[in-house]
Design a protein around this nucleic acid. Sequence first.
DNA 1: TGTTAGCACTCCTAATCAACGAGTGCTAAT
DNA 2: ATTAGCACTCGTTGATTAGGAGTGCTAACA
Lengths: 343, 343
Amino acid sequence: MLLTDRQLLILQIIVDDFIRSAQPVGSRTLSKKEGISLSSATIRNEMADLEEMGYIEKTHTSSGRVPSEKGYRYYVDHLLSPQALNQQDISVIQSIFAEKIFEFEKVIQKSAKILSELTNYTSIVLGPAVSVNKLKRLQIIPLNKETAVAILVTDTGHVENRTFPLPVSVDPSDIEKMVNILNERLTGVPLEDLHNKIYKEVATLLKQHINNYDLMLHQIAETLKMPIHEKLFFAGKANMLSQPEFNDITKIRNLLTMIDQEEWITNLIRSNTAGISVKIGSENQDRVMDNCSLITATYSAGSEKLGSIAILGPTRMEYSRVISLLKIISRDLTEVFTKLYQE
Amino acid sequence: MLLTDRQLLILQIIVDDFIRSAQPVGSRTLSKKEGISLSSATIRNEMADLEEMGYIEKTHTSSGRVPSEKGYRYYVDHLLSPQALNQQDISVIQSIFAEKIFEFEKVIQKSAKILSELTNYTSIVLGPAVSVNKLKRLQIIPLNKETAVAILVTDTGHVENRTFPLPVSVDPSDIEKMVNILNERLTGVPLEDLHNKIYKEVATLLKQHINNYDLMLHQIAETLKMPIHEKLFFAGKANMLSQPEFNDITKIRNLLTMIDQEEWITNLIRSNTAGISVKIGSENQDRVMDNCSLITATYSAGSEKLGSIAILGPTRMEYSRVISLLKIISRDLTEVFTKLYQE
DNA sequence: TGTTAGCACTCCTAATCAACGAGTGCTAAT
DNA sequence: ATTAGCACTCGTTGATTAGGAGTGCTAACA
């Protein structure tokens, strides 16, 4: 059953109004909106229909109407008018990229901060999966007789380091030889493949050149095997506390506790593979997200997806504005990283 | 005016009871405690005296008594019976150090997590000031024609990295020469002194060996000058939401917002230079901490202070337990790092 | 046939009030 | 010095009330 133009208009105004005020919207309020020249009684009839179709709900028998999840979904899919950002917002966003950028993480972190400040919601940014980056250089630096630190530099300029125990009485010159061979053979290999590659292709080569290579190699290989998690950045966690739908402390506690579980939130955000994704309430598959919406966008370098940038807010979220902001920032991030990575 | 033994006993029970129940303590409740064989009327008289001296307060004219800040202070200074931790707590703490440890940050982070889980308060750990660590090795790895990443390894195994722009058309062999000279001259120098040292002692030397050294050197020196902040780790921020004194959302929001300001919280925690410090309520110099206490301990390597470990909770905090836990963990951390750094 | 005025009804909210009880301070007796 | 007794205070709880916003339905209207 299709919605009439009038029903669409009413639905749109209800959602817009509720997003603004957090108060259920009544027929009288609606009838006085400009763009509407109907009596409250007519609107009541239309609202009854909209409710029957599941787009809006009452909080109690004689209350005004509130958008249902289905209503938000329809609103996001069909009624969203792309909102032009004002000049002030735009210049704030540009400030992210104002300084010359060399450090990946700083840009990401600053984006998260700005985004949460502009929206008053919580922003979450998932850094790039370092494990697909390619090795630029491996260095091993002995700290003392028993430990050394292995340093991996990727072609993107990311630096990973791991401390590991040195086998007893290993010869410094052997380490150097080994590192040279490893670099020769492993440069350009994605970090996640290093472990395999070492055993499959490099081990035999090392055997010929270095005494007692195996213990050392094993140690290094194990060290490099540890998974490299995508980094997660948050900003504005406390913003959730300002939302009227979270005046219940236990709700907030549950939500904040969940958010602190990096693995959970990473999965939630990573599932989006391209473009903008809007997940409303229960679409997020977890009860703690019942009153929340999550909007995610991705950023890339060239055609390769690097990471995601997300806004978590109440279902009563300013979808239009948030989507506009995410689009701009993800576009700008993509632009910057494309330049940064591919020169 | 000194407190009599009986007043001490009553004060102690009031604080203990209030810490446990979060409810004002009345004279009748007190009179029924074991160890007390006085009528409620007598206790009322004593309580009136204690109140006059400022150790306890009423929430309203006919309510039971609640410890004042002065009362907590006295309790912490004189009435605290060092609480023995049970076996379970101890084994949980030991689990921090169960795996063989090479990575500093992991231990710190795990300590924070365990500490917040054991106490149900918020734990904050301040990592060591990297800037006093001494340079073990400097490496410069060109990423492409325009940028390179500088890597600093300290004698403690900490790795810092900075990406910076390469001067145009710099010769790779010059970079190598330069790095060799810098390593030769700068090894053992604290990171915070690098910048000075480079200009004072190394510049003239480089001049003799390398063409166009100045632009490159300047770039490196500037790169190294950026301040290295102590890292800050949090765990259990959401625990604050479970405390009954924070059932007011705006209070929590203010507190959480403050905590998110790294600089502020760093200063708060760093001020403690040794041992255990207990700051109660307004002793923390900020209104948002009015109902909070902050207990900090330090950890060291040998005799050198590395960082701090802290618990933030309500003034109605389990001081005895928290202090015991902090003592143990800071002792264990010190032990581990002393070994790790000084071999 | 679509629109609207009118009206009874529902239910939330805020205010008022009384009953209760936990706790106090004070006084007088022990 | 201690304590029983008592009047008093004040927060909490529950019931009651009034007001208002909003609804659904019916009947009249264009």
